[in-house]
Structures are given as C-alpha cells and as structure tokens.
C-alpha cells in the first residue's frame, strides 16, 4: 500500500525508511470552554499515527470528536494537551506552505465563482499561476467535463462535493483531509461517490484521513479504520483493512466484508452503550 513516490517536489526521502510518518497525534486532549466557564472535553488522550501514502478512516458515533481530530490535523484547532505533528512540523505550517487539501461536509464552494475558478482557487490563494492543464485534468477526473462554467447553485449536491474534492486535490497536497464529504448525500449518490473517490485516490495516492460515520464507506476506501468512542472522544480500536484494490461490488458482497462491517458496527453500538 505504501508509496513514498514522487507526489511532492518538496519531499526528501530518508534512505533508511521506506515510509515516513505523515501525521502523528500524541496524547492529545481537547477541552472547549463554553459560556459561563463550563468545560467540555471533546478528546481524551488520542494517539494516532498515519504513514505517508496511507488512507486512514476515522469512524465513530456523532459527537465523538472525530471531526475535532481532523481540525487538529488541519491546524484549525490546537490540542489543549499533547502534540500534533504533520511531517514533523506544526500543522498550520503545512497550510501556509499550501501543501494541505481539505474537503468539508459543507462544500464551502464560493457561490460567485464558476466550477473552474473554484477548483483554481488554491492556485490563486497561493499566488501561483493557475495550471490550466491540471485544472482541466481534475475536472475530468471528478467527471464534471462540460460543467466548467456552471455556478455551484446550478449543480446537484453530489456534483458540488466533487468540485470540493477536486479543489482539495488542486495543488497535489501532501495530506488530504476529508470531513464527511458525502454526509449530506443520499445513499445511492454516496456509494457512487465512494467508488469515484477510490478511483481518484488510486491515481493520486495522497496520504488521506477520512472522517465518516458510515462503516461501509470506511471499509471501501481505507487501509486502516480507527474506531472512536464518544464523550470524551478516545481511540477504541484500530483495524487493518486488507481487501485488495480496486474494491468493487464483488468485494462489498463478500462474506469477509460483511463480517468486518458487522464487527465494526457492533463496536460502534457498544460505544453508545458505554457512553450511556
């Protein structure tokens, strides 16, 4: 699964390791201070390592702090205790160097800009010349050829998420963070988008963390699945997913797949029991 290959020009590969650590979260706590001095502990002693080129999915019941882990990795929040390092540096440095790609549950497309300029936005923000060939390639990759000039409100929910993913990929980031990107979609569109994301990831092989509450989605896409428990969020267990890629309908219909789905689902249910 691992490929330290030639995705990023900035990367200098240490000879002795086949894979570097991309993301390392060490004993991270996150405590939010609410109004009137009340405190809410969102995360407790979360440990997570993601190797370069790996696809990791974080699943858990809603409100278990899985999105908080992602916000820590993106440098949008800081841990109250513990450390978060991305490629050995503080998370926000990746953002300032324009090496981070993020797709949110809310697509966060600019409503006044066309599909094309939304995808080209990271170039403009980074102050780089827009690579037209790359943008065209991404539009084709996410299957939106012919919609370049459309504005977000003219698109369906699934198309908007594809634009959002294409935008996240624009600068060939070193790390891709996906926060329930298909959370607002219907089940059918969602599966189609899962398949497309798997295909895109197969072509780009970017270190990816996906946050989702959908067990099937995690198993279709990830190399490893992290199961979190709620209130405060902790890592309960980490599962390796060894199904061969591409994971097509044959994989998802296999008994092994169903077994794993059942096992993870029961873990999630048990979490709810624990929390109550």
């Amino acid at each position: 699964m691992s490929s330290t290959a030639t995705l990023t020009p900035m990367e200098t590969k240490p000879a002795e390791h086949a894979t570097r650590t991309a993301v390392s979260v060490n004993r991270a706590d996150k405590i939010f201070t609410l109004s009137r001095g009340k405190k809410l502990q969102a995360l407790a002693e979360v440990d997570l390592e993601v190797r370069e080129g790996e696809f990791v999915a974080i699943i858990g019941p809603s409100g278990c702090g899985k999105s908080t882990v992602l916000r820590l990795a993106a440098g949008l929040d800081r841990p109250t205790n513990g450390t978060v390092e991305i490629f050995g540096a503080a998370p926000h440095e990746l953002a300032t160097q324009h090496r981070l790609g993020v797709a949110f549950q809310e697509h966060a497309l600019l409503p006044w800009a066309s599909v094309r300029s939304n995808i080209a936005l990271p170039y403009k923000v980074a102050g780089r010349k827009v690579d037209d060939a790359r943008v065209d390639g991404l539009i084709e990759l996410v299957g939106l050829k012919g919609f370049e000039k459309a504005r977000p409100k003219q698109l369906s929910g699934g198309m908007r998420q594809r634009v959002s993913i294409a935008r996240a990929l624009a600068l060939s980031p070193d790390l891709l963070l996906l926060d329930e990107p298909f959370g607002a979609l219907d089940a059918v569109t969602r599966r189609r988008m899962n398949a497309e994301l798997a295909r895109i990831w197969g072509e780009e092989k970017i270190t990816t963390i996906l946050v989702t509450h959908d067990v099937d989605e995690a198993l279709i896409l990830a190399d490893r699945v992290v199961v979190m428990t709620g209130r405060p969020g902790r890592v309960r267990t980490i599962k390796n997913v060894d199904f061969p890629r591409p994971r097509d309908a044959a994989t998802t219909r296999s008994p092994e797949f169903h077994e794993l789905v059942d096992e993870l689902t029961s873990l999630l249910d048990a979490n709810d029991g624990d929390a109550a």
Binding site: L76, Q97, H98, V102, E106
Partner: peptide, 14 residues
C-alpha cells in the same frame, strides 16, 4: 462570512 469558508481559506494557507 461562514465559518466553513473561513476554515477553507485557513487550510489553503491564504
């Protein structure tokens, strides 16, 4: 401005 847009501009290093 929506917080999602603000987050977006933070993560793309604006």
């Amino acid at each position: 401005t929506s917080s999602a847009h603000q987050d977006l501009f933070t993560v793309i290093g604006a």
